[in-house]
Amino acid sequence: EDYYQILGVPRNASQKEIKKAYYQLAKKYHPDTNKDDPKAKEKFSQLAEAYEVLSDEVKRKQYDA
């Protein structure tokens, strides 16, 4: 799945936009606030993985290549 789609940001998003999108979605899908939703944990880990790659310039360049 596309990391940009997961975070809901365009491919040319700035680091600030990526961070903002991640924090909004992380708050929304955090397992502690969605105890009754088994998919929230999965969504949250996808968000974390996408953010880890896109927030790191080197990893992001490799991902975009």
Rank of each mutant, 00 (worst) to 15 (best):
K19W: 12
Y63G: 02
L25H: 05
L54N: 00
S45Y: 12
P31T: 07
K28A: 10
Y29S: 05
P31A: 10
V53T: 14
E1A: 11
D36A: 14
T33G: 14
A50W: 01
Q24L: 14
A40N: 09
D32C: 07
A65H: 11
E49Y: 06
A21E: 03
Q24K: 12
K28L: 14
K43Q: 08
Y4W: 02
Y63F: 04
K39W: 13
Y63R: 03
A26E: 09
S55Y: 06
A13Y: 01
G8F: 04
K19M: 15
E57N: 06
K41R: 15
E57C: 08
F44D: 03
K27M: 12
K28S: 09
E1Y: 12
K27E: 15
K16I: 15
E17Q: 11
E49L: 11
A65E: 15
N34D: 08
A50V: 06
Y22T: 01
K20Q: 15
Y3A: 03
Q24T: 13
Y23T: 15
Q5F: 11
Q5C: 14
E1S: 14
D64L: 02
K41Y: 14
E52K: 08
L25F: 04
K61S: 05
K41P: 10
E17M: 13
L47M: 08
Y3S: 01
E57Y: 07
S55P: 00
R11H: 15
K61A: 14
D32G: 12
V53W: 05
K43E: 06
Q62M: 09
L7C: 02
Q15V: 12
E17F: 06
H30I: 08
D2R: 03
Y51T: 01
Q24R: 12
K35A: 13
L25D: 03
D2K: 03
P38K: 07
S55T: 05
P38S: 10
P10F: 05
P38Q: 10
H30V: 05
Y23F: 12
S14A: 05
D2G: 06
D32M: 06
R11G: 05
A50L: 03
A50C: 04
K16Y: 14
A26Y: 15
K61H: 09
K43D: 04
Y23N: 15
I18H: 00
E49G: 08
Q62E: 15
L47G: 03
N12V: 05
A21T: 04
D56F: 02
E1H: 15
T33W: 10
K28E: 12
D37V: 06
K20R: 14
Q46M: 12
K41M: 15
R60C: 02
Y63V: 03
E52Q: 09
V58E: 14
S55L: 04
P38F: 07
E52S: 12
S45E: 09
N34F: 06
Q5R: 08
S14Q: 05
K59G: 03
R11E: 05
K19V: 15
Y4I: 00
K28R: 12
D64H: 02
A21V: 05
K61P: 03
S14I: 06
V9I: 11
P10T: 10
K16P: 08
Y4L: 01
K35S: 11
A40L: 11
L25R: 06
T33A: 12
L7R: 00
V53K: 02
K16D: 15
K39Q: 11
E52V: 07
E42A: 12
E49F: 06
I18G: 00
Y29H: 08
Y23H: 14
P10S: 13
K39G: 13
K27L: 13
Y3K: 03
Y4T: 00
R60N: 02
A21W: 03
D32W: 01
K20W: 15
K28F: 08
Q46L: 10
K59H: 04
A65T: 09
K41F: 13
K27W: 05
I6G: 01
Y23D: 15
E49N: 07
D37R: 06
E42Y: 10
S45T: 08
H30Y: 09
D32P: 07
K61V: 05
K41I: 12
